[in-house]
Design a protein around this nucleic acid. Structure first.
Lengths: 152, 152
DNA sequence: AATTTATGTCAGTGTTGTTGACATTGTTTG
DNA sequence: CAAACAATGTCAACAACACTGACATAAATT
């Protein structure tokens, strides 16, 4: 059993998400807010339903977090052009700035772990992550352009 | 910014920890119980203080989880031989069996992601995880033998 | 016109984390 | 040896973030 990989995964993820905690707490936010900010910044104009699908939480749970982010001016909503029931989510300038701050330490951590690695090794790591994701969700990864759409 | 790696990390970890959720819920346990079971099975005889240090939670938070695990016979305690104030934690046979069940799907996921990879690629992935962990915690990784003690 | 869909909201609940205070037992030290 | 310190346990109150169930509204679909 790959017990070592399980443990390394735990520690690495713990420290990775921990990077942003202090900054989030300073704004009265938590990790839930960070996850929303990440996806809204990654793909602006995402409808609420997609976010629910990605985060795998209930709309009631998302509502609380989203209410705060919108109320404090980090995220804005716009009715969908084709389907006007949809609320498309966009980061505001404030939201983009805050997200960049949140991402800075995480990006540093990733960059320094990648620094001395060959392009091939970097591909290996990305491929490993993809292989760890449920095959059912690979379509989602492509839709978010987290993996190359041309890949199998 | 390596936004793609951030996202892949999120999805991979989400699905990885999700593997055990249904089994845990069936016993009335959650992810907190799983984390304790992991470390107690990985290094039997670990004192409570070490577990607190690893999990980075308060003793009150650990107490609730540990009380259940001990009460339902998954974990046992023994006073330390040299320092009898310490409570050393051991999995019971029931605890070992349950942990093996919990680990089965996670191990499958990891093994199939590793399957077609060269020993070198596997080393790259382990090294990446280590590089993602706070350098301060590298001593802990060695103590847990999650990385080779001879490494720098 | 009736139904379904996307979203929002109210109210109540559970898990897992937090702080603060205090007790017990065992080790260490002056 | 007595005092101080350390490892653990426990009580109580609280917060973040998940859950369920029920209901409302507006827009799309049939």
């Amino acid at each position: 059993m790959p017990l070592d990989v399980m443990g390394l995964f735990y520690f690495a993820y713990r420290d990775f998400v921990g990077d942003a905690d202090a900054l989030l707490a300073h704004q009265g936010f938590g990790r839930a807010h960070h996850r929303v900010l990440y996806f809204v910044n990654l793909r602006p104009g995402m409808p609420v339903a997609d976010l629910l699908d990605i985060l795998r939480i209930t709309k009631q749970s998302l509502a609380r977090v989203l209410r705060q982010l919108i109320g404090e001016g980090y995220v804005s909503q716009k009715a969908g052009a084709d389907d006007r029931r949809q609320r498309l989510l966009y980061p505001t300038e404030k939201g983009r700035r805050f997200f960049r701050t949140l991402s800075a330490t995480q990006a540093n951590r990733i960059n320094s772990a990648f620094e001395h690695l060959s392009p091939d090794a970097r591909r290996t790591i990305r491929a490993f992550f993809v292989a760890m994701v449920e095959p059912n969700d690979h379509g989602r990864l492509k839709a978010l352009k987290l993996i190359d759409t041309r890949d199998p």
